[in-house]
Write a protein that binds this DNA or RNA. Structure first.
Length: 263
DNA sequence: ATGCCGGGCGAAGCCCGA
């Protein structure tokens, strides 16, 4: 029975991070990599660097900001670009496709949910409304009753065990109860947090700020998640965080999170 | 410490991220 490894990685500029990302792909060798914060248009995406490693790319790009991609060692079919529910939303934060293998198919989304800070700006209601749209769309996807992985940077800390200092973060858009309720509402549709299903240990982070020595002090937060539909969760074998990338030269402020499904 | 770093843009200094 073949395993499929699916990873998510907010790269914070795919051009600035090209060596880091290709190096990680060579060693971690995921079947599917969901990338976020490309910070480039689709036509400027360094497609050849990934194709030479055996990956097919589906890209929703945007100049300077946002940008998401799916890389796959298998074919990508039925690609959907953009999150439904608001035709006026220009931000490139969502791409979804079906990964087809001989052993079976998995629907995978690469998600870059809005940050939402500062909370007294229009960014916070945009974040909450975006999560509402994701919940509506996820409900539709679940009706297929097939393996589905919603992977990405959710910009939401699920619990107090996922942040180095819950008190310092309590009024932040990433940890406010209103934000956490949105993530919980999504999960409660029937999703499984792949990392948490495999790892009970608290304070396992996926992001450390570049500033204030956050990495050296382990002042991190867990905001990158792989949410599995019941049909995907039944096939979950392992999950983890590739923490060591944060200590390498010119790192992203996020690190990859991955899971393995037994198809 | 709602920006200390780091990236984009574009060629200095501002906008943005979490």
């Amino acid at each position: 029975m073949p395993a499929m490894k699916i990873a998510t990685f907010n790269v914070n500029s795919v051009k600035a991070r090209l060596d880091a990302v290709t190096g990680w792909l060579r060693t971690a060798s995921p079947d599917v990599a969901c990338l976020q914060e490309l910070k480039c248009e689709a036509k400027a995406f360094p497609r050849e660097a990934f194709e030479s490693l055996g990956y097919t790319c589906a890209v929703l790009g945007q100049k300077t900001y946002n940008g998401v991609a799916l890389l796959s060692k298998h074919g990508i079919e039925d690609v959907r670009e953009g999150l439904p529910g608001d035709d006026t939303d220009e931000q490139a934060r969502y791409i979804e496709g079906t990964i087809v293998t001989r052993a079976g198919a998995v629907r995978v989304a690469s998600i870059y949910a809005p940050n939402g800070n500062p909370v007294d700006s229009e960014k916070y209601p945009y974040k909450l409304a975006w999560m509402d749209r994701l919940i509506v769309h996820a409900r539709t996807l679940l009706r297929d009753e097939e393996p589905l992985v919603l992977a990405g940077d959710y910009n939401i800390i699920p619990t107090e065990h996922d942040v180095w200092d819950p008190v310092a973060w309590k009024d932040d858009a990433l940890f406010k109860l209103e934000s956490r309720r949105k993530l919980r509402e999504l999960v409660n549709l029937g999703f499984t947090d792949a990392f948490r299903a495999c790892n009970a240990k608290p304070h396992q982070y996926t992001f450390w700020d570049y500033q204030a020595g956050a990495w050296s002090k382990d002042h991190g937060i867990r905001i990158d998640h792989l949410l599995l539909s019941p049909q995907a969760a039944d096939r979950l074998k392992a999950a983890g965080i590739d923490r060591k990338l944060r200590g390498q030269d010119k790192p992203s402020d996020h690190v990859p999170v991955w899971c393995e499904l037994q198809l």
